[in-house]
Simulated assay, not measured.
Amino acid sequence: MVTGAGRGLGASIARSLADGGARVFVNDIDRDLAARTVSEIEERGGEAIALTGDVSSSVSVDELVGHVIDREGRIDWLVNNVASYVRHAGSFWETDPEEWERILRLTLTTTFLCSRAAAPHMVQRQSGRIVNIASQAAFSYVPWQGPHYHAAKAGVVHLTRTMAVELAPHGVTVNAMSPTAIEREGDHEGSAVRDAERGAIIDHIPLGRLARAEEAVAAVAFLLSDQASFVTGETLVVNGGVLGYGIRPPGGPVP
């Protein structure tokens, strides 16, 4: 099950896992986007099922995971990809409390709710993999992403560690993948990278470019694979060396 898989990185992850032989449940709150990803997977010879629903609702999440269990009898992998981002130009004290709550719910609480619903089934089978999508914003400053997004993604990293410790005795691993801005070829819908910001981001990435989707996807695939069976509670950073360096606004001071 891959959440937020109607477009962007989530869709790329779903397509890649299906290419590798997985039967993928494609979740998105938008029915048409979920169906589009399923169609793309089927055109490539893979198998996928659309799973439309709001993963910020505990009732909806229980129904979605229940559907997977009813159909398959198990859930092997969960990729928590759903998040919400809005441009934020002001200081943290100028952040609207309602917007703060919304971003945390869509970015952090969704990870908790989906993991909470899937984990008991994995524990029962003494097997499973959970990968949470974090962000460079969990570790370093990105001015236009705002305090709510930074806090939520940092929460994803620490929730990953907590879940990993609790699920390890049951043969279930939990890890995170933390990318920098991703170049989304052919699909720029919802991209957080605007033209005015692109140069500022690239200027602060030692490798001198944005990440390619396949590079982020490969990291997720590794964490789900048998090769990562002894890796848990970790965050695999895929950001071209920018960790800890931070990103400044265009024209801003270089650290």
Rank of each mutant, 00 (worst) to 15 (best):
A11E: 10
A11L: 10
S12Q: 13
I13G: 09
I13M: 04
A14Q: 05
R15M: 15
S16M: 12
L17I: 00
A18E: 00
A18L: 07
G20M: 12
G21F: 14
A22P: 08
R23Y: 14
V24S: 00
V24N: 00
V26D: 04
I29G: 11
I29N: 11
D30T: 07
D30A: 14
D32P: 02
D32W: 11
L33I: 04
V38K: 09
S39M: 10
I41G: 01
E42S: 13
G45H: 06
G46M: 10
A48V: 09
L51A: 02
T52L: 01
T52V: 08
D54R: 04
D54S: 07
S57P: 02
S60G: 06
V61R: 08
H67L: 11
V68D: 00
V68F: 05
R71H: 12
R74S: 12
W77Y: 15
V79R: 01
N80V: 00
N81K: 06
N81M: 02
R87Q: 11
H88K: 09
A89P: 05
F92R: 08
W93Q: 07
E94H: 05
E94K: 03
E94Q: 09
D96F: 06
E99Q: 10
E99T: 04
E101M: 02
I103V: 15
I103N: 02
L104K: 03
L104H: 03
L106V: 06
L106A: 13
T107H: 05
T107V: 03
L108S: 04
L108C: 09
L108D: 02
